[in-house]
Design a protein around this nucleic acid. Sequence first.
DNA 1: TAGTGGTCTAGACCACCGA
DNA 2: CGGTGGTCTAGACCACTAG
Lengths: 242, 242
Amino acid sequence: MTELVYQQIIADLKKRIFAGEFPSLHLPDERSLAEQYSVSRSSVKRALTRMASDGIIFKKRGAGTFINPLYLKNESVFNYEEGSNLGVSDNFQMNGQRPQIKVLNFEVIRPTEEIQRDLFLHPDDFVYKIDRLRLFDDKPFMIETGYIPIKILPSLSLKKIEGSIFNYVEQAFGQTVSKSFLSIFAEPSTKLDQQLLNLTPTEPVGVMEGIFFLNNGTPFEFSRMRLHYQYMKYNTFVSVSN
Amino acid sequence: MTELVYQQIIADLKKRIFAGEFPSLHLPDERSLAEQYSVSRSSVKRALTRMASDGIIFKKRGAGTFINPLYLKNESVFNYEEGSNLGVSDNFQMNGQRPQIKVLNFEVIRPTEEIQRDLFLHPDDFVYKIDRLRLFDDKPFMIETGYIPIKILPSLSLKKIEGSIFNYVEQAFGQTVSKSFLSIFAEPSTKLDQQLLNLTPTEPVGVMEGIFFLNNGTPFEFSRMRLHYQYMKYNTFVSVSN
DNA sequence: TAGTGGTCTAGACCACCGA
DNA sequence: CGGTGGTCTAGACCACTAG
């Protein structure tokens, strides 16, 4: 697959960590690892920096590099770092159940200035506006409105948006959706929310809105998702500065 | 303050971005920036990589480096990337306003099994249970319940929890709170929420709950935060694999 | 004080994008 | 095709931690 040096090091170190090769939770120092793998120290450092930002290890200047004990005990929580895609079906746990999609509306429009800016469009570019209701085991859980430039996906069709658009892009162009910038907040439900998501007036919706990017950095979609509050559970690992 | 080359570059580029120096959202290429700042390309690259992982910019191989339009739109909300700490006052934008803390309850209890597991405690360890109401410009916006092992902070006092616990830990032990696992979701407000946060029955709360870690990897606190929905806006930049 | 991770340089070659 | 970001090397010096 990928043969990048630092990715090989990451893969190998993960394997060795799970094999219990470091019972003290103390990894070899960077210079030794560089020698072991016959690479430069910079490449080792790059690998370790990645692993640290994933929460697998942490580094202590002057002391060494250590395995995060939670990584061993709580491996499942870390599994998100394996995913190759940011799509709904990957982010929401729908274990074996049937995710369904009901297309509410599908049209081509002139984007607002806001959308233009968010997706780096010219004033004369057009976008698809796609409204979909997503169900899960026959229960609606999310209203999704997406805007996608037609120049990125000129061949989109009603048929295709009844399935996963992200998967379609991956198959058709070999580009994965691997970055997103989202705002997450909550709101009282509107009449429409209540109707489509089977909510009572006191029950809220969770809102997630933002931009999805392709692997190559192209802004791909602006999306606004309104979720039944019981189905919105967003998990994050945050690490600041260092 | 900090004189690191790449941090200076980051600071300067942010300034220039906000000054509107790049209306096309297209930054100069790495080699030009290296020349402008009289540093190596590696240092520029390090700065840009940091900014990209913060979601400020994104890079497109073969094309260039671009400003994330949401960064400009959302500027105030991005401020969390300035903090050296994950605390409330750093995560929520309280520009010049007065954050206040009102202690509702402070006691030592035997942790539930769930808390034991989350904080990696033994059955005979005790924890502080701390209930606080946080206000912002005299308006309550968050009810916070925290559990902290007494063995980590044996000297905690009522006085100390009237201020930032994270800052106290930093001053007293030189450990920053720099990592967290959080779940984020929404709920209808309870009677207590409505009373403390000035909410009507149809207005919801945002909930953020999870574990905060010290720099060295020690699980430090389990926290459950119930926020006035208008004050919860969580921005995340997610990047998988690459 | 010895050893560790952190930063920085200078230069090389590769992979990709767009005109 | 030229220009861009991505990866990697080799080596230097600094800042911190621990014995």
